[in-house]
Amino acid sequence: MTIAFDRRSLLRGAAGLATAWAAPRAARAQAAPPAGPFSLPPLPYPPSANEPHIDTQTMEIHHGRHHAAYVSNLNAALRDHAQLARLPLPDLLARLGEAPEAVRTALRNNGGGHANHSMFWEIMGGRGGAPSGELAEAIQRDLGGFDRMKADFNAAGLRVFGSGWVFVTVDRGGRLAIVTRPNQDTPLMEGGRVLMGNDVWEHAYYLKYQNRRADYLAAWWNVVNWEKVAARYAAAKAGTLGV
């Protein structure tokens, strides 16, 4: 399933161009016109899909309030910056240094928040298990195998002090690495690409896990959709991976 993360990256991405133009007029007319270039992608599954590991209420608030706020604040920050507003999100985030100082922090926080959460919804909704094929081989080669990857990823997520994310990055050669970023920063800001990532802001887990971030990190693997992650891995190697 392809998710319309945001209209811009689809419109600008080479792969998305034909699809977007071919979309039937009626289907497009149904969507509320966004108050800017970016829009909140619908969750690709019901908010209960990740139960019992991630509760329905957390999913609803996380997507419908937190992510929605990043989208609307991002659009607001772009209101008077037509040229920046035309950039696909990965390019906007990689070129924050060129943005006017007055909106740079808003673009960083909210653009990062939009990118991170769009990725996050995409790679969840699954049933966990283990990666396979070429992705599993890359994990073995670069991260010491799946068990080691999970342990290192969880430990890195636990070390993030305050709000932030833990990611697996992927480069054009398919090489993987585990990194963390504070707040809504993302490796996209250095021109990198994210294979997968977990949100360790307290809002991601507080209703169900409270202060027990380690338990959340461990449980989260049960909802990873490895087919989606594998598709992202293939896209990264093909140079078509967006946010």
């Binding site: 706020a69 305050g162 802001w201 307290e202």
Partner: peptide, 12 residues
């Protein structure tokens, strides 16, 4: 203003 201060009472 860490979220743990208010998430149970005020959510987002």
């Amino acid at each position: 203003v860490w979220e743990h201060s208010y998430y149970l009472d005020f959510r987002n």
